[in-house]
């Protein structure tokens, strides 16, 4: 069993919290894990990605080879397309549709959406809107994790435990808001394959 995931977004959007939750789930399942992150200059609003590799065998490279990612999980629509060369033929692209516009020449969002729709295995979800609807605007990353969860072969309860661990010091309200976001995202993905 192996899962290779590319997480993508813009520096400051907090993809590390998603990586940490998936990482905890993998560790709880006694699987091997390698997770490469971006620190430094790109964290200042640049394009960022994290390579997350999970396997029941020894993991060698910290980087996912071309064409071998099982999943691109992006918290920003344009960023979801930047890593397409890594996506395997039958891999899934799960992306947020709310653009993060911090450059003057951000392209037309419709053009971006057309490219996303052209990927046969894709889930496009307005995670920001859904997070607001579930009552916690800051939990959009957990909506995204929920939307990707059907394509990550790990038990849902492990993600729940991970969320509990990460957010418990912020109080039970924050934990339950993030859990709600997780379920909402998951439900959406299952209904909109």
């Amino acid at each position: 069993m192996k899962i290779d995931i590319i997480l993508s977004g813009v520096g400051g959007q907090g993809i590390v919290s998603i990586a940490a939750t998936i990482g905890m789930a993998a560790i709880a399942e006694n699987l091997n894990l390698k997770q490469s992150e971006v620190h430094g200059m790109s964290q200042r609003g640049g394009a960022v990605q994290s390579n997350l590799r999970i396997s029941d065998k020894e993991i060698l490279s910290d980087l996912i080879p071309n064409g071998q990612a099982d999943l691109i999980l992006s918290v920003e629509p344009m960023e979801s397309l930047r890593y397409l060369p890594y996506l395997s033929e039958d891999g899934w692209l799960v992306t947020n549709t709310t653009p993060f516009v911090n450059i003057p020449n951000y392209p037309d969002i419709e053009e971006i959406m057309n490219e996303i729709r052209a990927i046969p295995n894709h889930v496009a979800i307005d995670a920001d809107k859904m997070a607001k609807e579930t009552g916690s605007p800051r939990s959009s990353n957990m909506v995204m994790l929920g939307a990707a969860s059907p394509y990550i072969n790990l038990p849902l309860k492990r993600f729940e435990e991970g969320i509990r661990k990460i957010f418990e010091r912020k109080g039970e309200d924050v934990v339950s808001a993030n859990l709600k976001a997780l379920y909402a995202g998951r439900e959406f993905a299952q209904e909109n394959k």
Partner: peptide, 12 residues
Amino acid sequence: VKSGKNIPPVVT
């Protein structure tokens, strides 16, 4: 070397 799809030109 395997390769996925190219990066669409719309990506800036």
